[in-house]
Design a protein around this nucleic acid. Structure first.
Lengths: 167, 167
DNA sequence: GCGTAATATTTAACATGTTAGTAATTTAAT
DNA sequence: ATTAAATTACTAACATGTTAAATATTACGC
């Protein structure tokens, strides 16, 4: 009899791999009192400097959902790491910029991150690192190409009685 | 002048890739009223069936921290998807098993997951999928080998004034 | 046997993630 | 111009994630 779940869990494998990688960087972030999400925001803003980014762009760049980002930015604003101000031409839009304090924090953290990448490269091999970037790019490319032209509908039609109610 | 962050963000790339992959499976889970974490637990228990697992083992298998797992299991217990009972010989230990309802849910979901893996294979190419598993295994292997023999200390020594206080 | 350390799980306090819906504003179609 | 639709950000309610500490129990050294 064939097992009901013959495939290895790919999302889980990606999650575990990410955890193994970020475990090497987390102590650096913690030592500077920044969370992973805050660092992603700081990094996105620093890389695009000095252009301000809108929350949607930040969310897309950091893979943080809009509701999550609202809270993340509010706390970072409170810590004086970023500044948010309304756009003049479109009152819906918000523009997020790094504060001087935010820039200073990035300057202090960045070299430690870079040193850890160097250590990582030595530890796992430069070829493995290069292959990883290449494969992930390729995988994402194929996934996004497939999502754009949905050959097989990703959402199966279901009857509501298949769905147990949530309490 | 060299940029302060010359490396691509590998943890973020892994996170984005995982998101792109799980996006194809999420509708199936949602249609059956299970969260991603609940499905990981169900799947781990089903794969190891019929042996009960302890929370630690489940957490390790699913990459769910112990405190998170407490809540996840409590809700799944409430939904009658799993049963938790204390071990006889060691009163600290808890043994988690699938209930009949949990097993039935896995039986209903599993074939849809398998069909989606087949669609995924067609969409991105069987070779890409195979390469992905191989590379992630290799990357994890090297990471865990390096973590076991820490050549470079992963935690840099920092002064407390480097760390902004958290409110 | 007793006190201390180690182990397994849970609680607490908070940050982040989720979906659904709201509010404000802008765009676009009549 | 005026209404309907789309867009942007936010709020609400809840599930999950985090670290640190508490609790309970077992194992161990003496």
């Amino acid at each position: 009899m064939t097992p009901p779940l013959p495939r290895r869990n790919l999302p889980l494998l990606l999650l575990q791999t990410r955890e193994d990688v970020i475990a090497r960087f987390r102590p650096i972030l913690h030592a500077h009192g920044v969370t992973e999400q805050q660092w992603r925001v700081l990094r996105a803003l620093a890389e695009d400097a000095p252009q301000p980014l809108e929350p949607r762009q930040l969310g897309a760049a950091c893979t943080i959902s809009s509701p999550s980002l609202t809270g993340v930015l509010a706390r970072m604003d409170e810590l004086d790491l970023v500044a948010q101000r309304r756009d003049g031409t479109d009152a819906r839009r918000v523009r997020v910029t790094l504060t001087a304090r935010g820039r200073a924090l990035v300057r202090r953290i960045a070299p430690r991150i870079e040193r850890e990448y160097q250590a990582l490269e030595v530890a796992i091999g430069a070829d493995v690192l290069r292959d990883a970037y290449a494969l992930l790019d390729r995988l994402r490319g194929e996934l996004r190409a497939a999502a754009a032209i949905p050959g097989t509908p990703a959402v199966p039609i279901l009857r509501s009685r298949d769905r147990p109610k949530r309490r």
